[in-house]
Amino acid sequence: MKAEPLENPQAHPSRPSQQVVRQAIHWLLRLRNHASAPTLRRQCDLWRAAHPEHELAWQRVQSLHSELSANLRAVPGAHIALDTLENSAQRLGRRQALKLLSGVVLVGGAAWLGKDLGWQTWNADFATATGERRGFQLPDGTRLELNTHSAADLDFSAEQRLITLVRGEIMLTCHRDPGRPLRVQSRHGLFEGLEGRFVVRQDSDCTRLSVTSGSVAIRSHPGSNGAPIQVTAGQSYRVTSSTATLSPSLDMDADAWVDGLIVTRNMRLQDFLNEVGRYRQGYLKCAAAIADLRLSGVFRLEDTDKLLAILPRTLAVRIRYRTRWWVTVERLA
């Protein structure tokens, strides 16, 4: 579902109130209990459209519910507890169900789920679960795409267009807005795009910028001495806490994930598995002896198990499943 973010964030709180969040949870429960009721769906749509704060709360509740479900179902046996929770919520009255779901949110933030979800995800304006990709149309016409396990905040006003990358990876397709350039803030720098298409990926140790069309300025980063760096179409930069360096030719297409693909060119097997691992739960590695094997090709992301099953067709390897969540790639004997 696409969302229309806030056209004037200063006209109301940047975070939805607790009351509005609980209303969003209430609508979510009602729709889950009566999925085939078109009248109820229309009523929910009207509630969402009544105020930007309603839509913001709805998107956050949807994002949290999606990731909560994905993470719980990734744990062996946890699906039983989750199904019990969902079935119990359906049988409870409105007040009890709200209390139950709110309790799940609070407990999830304090337990092991909190490590993966984090309150940053709950507070973020836009977020995706592991393996999920979502697109949004922003008020100025900019297209925002979020890759797997990503989150971003939006701060648009008459004076600025600012997106803060909380985690993960985004792609932006933006248009020129005189006097109000589009800026992306990551932990490692500030990136400014006037017009074009570019990808920003925030890893633990660096932020990677890849420009597909147009140009982007690396406006500031530690060690830049205030001098912006112009990045043109076809170029990629790696920005750390102290440097910004031009990357050599990439071994994968930086924006292919938007189309649900990984496109590689002579990529190391271990690096490839690291990429695939971003879209699935659990452990995915290969033996050190075959980490440097190379592969090229186009791989679809919608089913990572099917993707892995393709590897033995091109490499002398086998896929070993200890469990669904513990997978290793080994040399074929």
Rank of each mutant, 00 (worst) to 15 (best):
A3Y: 13
R95A: 15
T142I: 12
Q43A: 13
A97S: 15
D125N: 12
S241Q: 13
A89I: 15
V199A: 10
V75P: 02
F136T: 13
Q185D: 05
A49Q: 14
H34G: 00
S69F: 02
P312T: 11
S186V: 10
M267Y: 05
A35H: 11
L308C: 04
Q23T: 13
V276K: 03
I163K: 05
G223A: 07
W27H: 10
W325C: 03
P9L: 14
L246V: 13
H26F: 02
G77A: 04
T323M: 04
V276D: 01
R278M: 02
Q19A: 15
I290S: 06
G277L: 06
G114C: 06
K99H: 12
D153F: 09
E195A: 13
D292T: 15
E7Q: 10
M1N: 03
S14Y: 03
Q59M: 10
A217I: 01
F156A: 04
V75N: 01
D251A: 11
L190V: 15
V231G: 02
V298Y: 07
T240V: 11
E7G: 09
R180F: 09
V329T: 08
A152H: 04
A151I: 10
I80Q: 10
L64D: 05
T212F: 06
F136S: 04
R30W: 01
A111N: 10
R313H: 12
A111K: 01
T323R: 07
Q235T: 08
L261A: 01
R197D: 04
I80C: 00
G131C: 06
V107L: 15
E330M: 11
E145M: 14
T328M: 05
L72W: 15
A124C: 05
A244E: 04
G196M: 05
I218A: 05
V317G: 04
V216W: 04
A151W: 05
V61E: 02
L308A: 06
